[in-house]
Design a protein around this nucleic acid. Structure first.
Length: 586
DNA sequence: GCCGTTTTCGGCCCGACTGTTTTCAGTCG
């Protein structure tokens, strides 16, 4: 896809222009880059069918940028960027990823010290060559070294699943301070992004007419925050904002805001930046001004205590944080057409659970007991099949035995007058040729069949696409587990044609899994949205090998929400009979 | 550089903090 390549080029041009302090042009390039990223059609196709004029019609693209796109499509490069790069030949993307370093500092560092990349930067900082430069200093030099360390470890982003439990604990503790009125996470934690750069927490303190008292209360919160267990470094501590590094290696910021501005601050710090820019523009169009302090008409504050009020005054329905990425949610809110997103209470059960029959931790009965306690109506046991020897995969005979055991447990439930049921499933392996590693007769004894790719992940795009298609065409296969195969921060998704998979999934009524494991979250949000649009049904599963990971379901749910999924899109939000009849493909 | 029933010229989102300064540039969200 050329879109993201060209977006990257425009992004880089923007950075170079910022280096020279050129006003407004950088934003224009950033804007264009962003529009290209979210454009669903292929830019090369647009050019092929509509020519230069079609390029100019794309929002944010004018004559000059259309020329650059044309140039790139024809020659594979953009001369203007080549010239800029020649002037300051540095690894811009890497250098600005260091906290506190921006394009202007990159320029100075190159001109004074010939720093081109991260290792140059690290060496210069270690040799104390940076502190003497104009505009730099001891502190900056130290921050650079720490910033580089941070980057080296985990590329500076953390899984939501690692971060959120810590955030919840911290919030729980701060909540207990009696001066605290409201508290909420903000930023990407609140939007439930799959990875988190740093954490923002927002606090309001109880109303008082005396500024000195307010100050003392804020001070108390700040003192408490920076002395929390788990804080390893204090970056800064003030009356309105403090910032710390946690033992987990990530940073956490807290802000104290007045009660009357809590909603506007929450809105503002929840982002995304792109979402907020549009909101501010809407405010301006209405003759208003929106900031973290409130929504103002002249000097009069007309909203700010809560988010709903702000959105309402701007003519919008309140938008769930998971949607705030400027990817159509504002338009939808204007037309009152926001989706009714799936919620934890909508989930009836989990169909991707491994028992001790295939090397999992817990017996089927224990798993069922835990699921019942969570309020589920059913649980599906989907043990691995024989190809996965390392996971103790079951062969036809073992699978049959296991099924009989499930019948036994289910009849016990019946005696106890419980509605709860264990469903018989498996997670079969999709072989490189697309066949399933266990025979159809064994599969036909099951309530449902999950199939997944677990081996030989490196194939050509065509081979992998055909492999998965063939599996979906098996009349017994109901669900494809972790369909893209990615592991966040470890492994890219495999090469395959997702659009084609969607087509066949719809035709064969195959369900695609949203795997809830924090390092999988597969499908990812953009895939989910595509699937929904294509009319393909999905299921949110945990892929648990122990009852302890049942609660991870919430990450799958938030991922589904980020993908605009509603109850109707997710089959484990349906009553069990409806779900079962949908699964029976043949 | 882009955009436009307020405009083909004059606007582009806003504010705070840090580290460097001694009034502010750069970065960040």
């Amino acid at each position: 896809m050329y879109n993201s390549e060209i977006a990257k080029i425009f992004h880089e041009i923007a950075l170079y222009l910022e280096m020279d302090n050129i006003p407004f042009k950088p934003q224009a390039y950033e804007k264009a880059a962003e529009n290209l990223e979210i454009l669903s059609e292929d830019i090369a196709e647009i050019y092929k069918s509509g020519g230069f004029e079609a390029l100019e019609k794309i929002s944010g693209i004018g004559k000059s940028m259309a020329e650059k796109i044309e140039e790139y499509l024809k020659k594979g490069k953009v001369k203007e960027l080549e010239i800029l790069k020649k002037k300051i030949p540095v690894d811009l993307e890497a250098l600005i990823s260091v906290e506190g370093i921006g394009p202007r500092k990159v320029k100075t560092l190159y001109q004074k010290l010939k720093i081109k990349n991260l290792s140059d930067l690290e060496k210069a900082a270690r040799d104390h060559k940076i502190a003497p430069l104009d505009g730099f200093g001891e502190k900056t030099e130290q921050n650079i070294l720490e910033g580089i360390e941070f980057l080296k470890r985990d590329k500076g982003r953390f899984l939501l699943g690692e971060i959120e439990p810590v955030v919840e604990e911290v919030i729980g503790k701060i909540k207990k301070i009696k001066e605290v009125k409201m508290i909420s996470p903000a930023g990407s934690v609140r939007r439930k992004k799959e990875t988190i750069g740093d954490v923002d927490i927002l606090v309001s303190i109880k109303k008082t007419s005396q500024p000195a008292v307010a100050k003392a209360m804020a001070g108390k919160v700040m003192d408490f925050f920076v002395s929390l267990p788990g804080v390893v470094k204090i970056w800064g501590k003030g009356m309105t904002k403090s910032s710390v590094r946690m033992a987990g290696g990530f940073d956490m910021d807290i802000r104290v805001v007045p009660e009357k501005s809590f909603g506007s601050a929450l809105q503002y710090f929840s982002g995304s930046k792109e979402h907020n820019i549009i909101l501010r523009k809407i405010a301006i169009d209405k003759g208003l001004k929106l900031s973290e302090y409130g929504l103002f008409k002249g000097s009069k504050m007309i909203a700010g205590e809560n988010e709903e009020g702000i959105y309402k005054k701007l003519g919008l329905k309140w938008i769930p944080p998971e949607l705030r990425e400027n990817s159509g949610e504002i338009e939808a809110a204007l037309k009152n057409k926001l989706p009714k997103l799936v919620e934890p209470k909508d989930i009836f059960g989990d169909l991707h659970v491994h028992s001790n029959w295939n090397g999992g931790e817990d017996s089927m009965e224990e798993l069922a007991q835990t699921a019942m306690k969570m309020g589920y109506e059913y649980i599906g046991i989907s043990d691995h099949t024989k190809f996965l020897r390392i996971e103790n995969g079951l062969d036809e005979k073992k699978l049959h035995e296991r099924n009989k055991e499930i019948d036994k447990i289910n009849s016990k439930f019946k005696i106890k007058n419980s509605k709860f049921r264990i469903l018989k499933g498996c997670e079969a392996n999709i072989m490189p040729d697309g066949s399933i590693d266990i025979d159809n007769k064994a599969l036909s004894e099951l309530d449902y069949v999950i199939a997944g790719v677990h081996s030989q992940l490196r194939m050509t795009k065509e081979e992998m696409t055909n492999r998965i298609i063939k599996a979906m065409e098996n009349p017994h296969v109901d669900i494809i587990s972790h369909p893209t195969g990615r592991i966040i921060k470890q492994r890219e998704e495999y090469e395959f044609d997702f659009d084609k998979i969607l087509e066949v999934a719809r035709e064969t009524k195959t369900v695609l899994e949203i795997n809830s494991f924090p390092n999988r979250l597969d499908l990812k949000d953009t895939n989910i949205r595509k699937a929904k649009k294509a009319g393909v049904k999905m299921i949110i599963n945990t892929d648990s090998h122990t009852k302890r990971t049942f609660p991870l379901m919430k990450y799958g749910i938030s991922q589904a929400r980020r993908g605009w999924a509603e109850k109707g899109d997710i089959i484990n939000c349906w009553p069990v009979e409806k779900m079962k009849s949908f699964l029976k493909k043949s």
